[in-house]
Amino acid sequence: MNPLHHYLLLSALLFSVGLAGALTRRHAILVLVGIELMLNAANLNFLAFWRFGPNPEALTGVMFVIFAIAVAAAEAAVGLALIISIYRHFRTSNVDEVNRLKG
């Protein structure tokens, strides 16, 4: 069995990759993909702390991950609907060109 900090380092790496993608890519769908990666990194942290925690019988980490996955699925559905709506409106899915609110 691997020690806890290996899982935490994997999670940190995944979070950083997702953050870099969400900050640097232009396409709105890829920004959403980066956000999904960050959410999954958080889920990995929950499961690692559940597995190595003092009483894993309580299943708290598992329950939190189940609800986090459900919320992430809802977020992905609404986010992709927003991207499709923005594409219909602006004829682009480049987040740099959707700047009508810019002062």
Partner: peptide, 26 residues
């Protein structure tokens, strides 16, 4: 969204700032 066609630019105007932020977070 017909996004599979090559977008005009690959990354934002300032990719280095995003990469630096992500690296700092990691």
């Amino acid at each position: 969204t017909r996004g599979a066609e090559a977008p005009p630019g690959r990354v934002t105007f300032a990719p280095w700032s995003g990469l630096i932020v992500a690296l700092a977070v990691f």
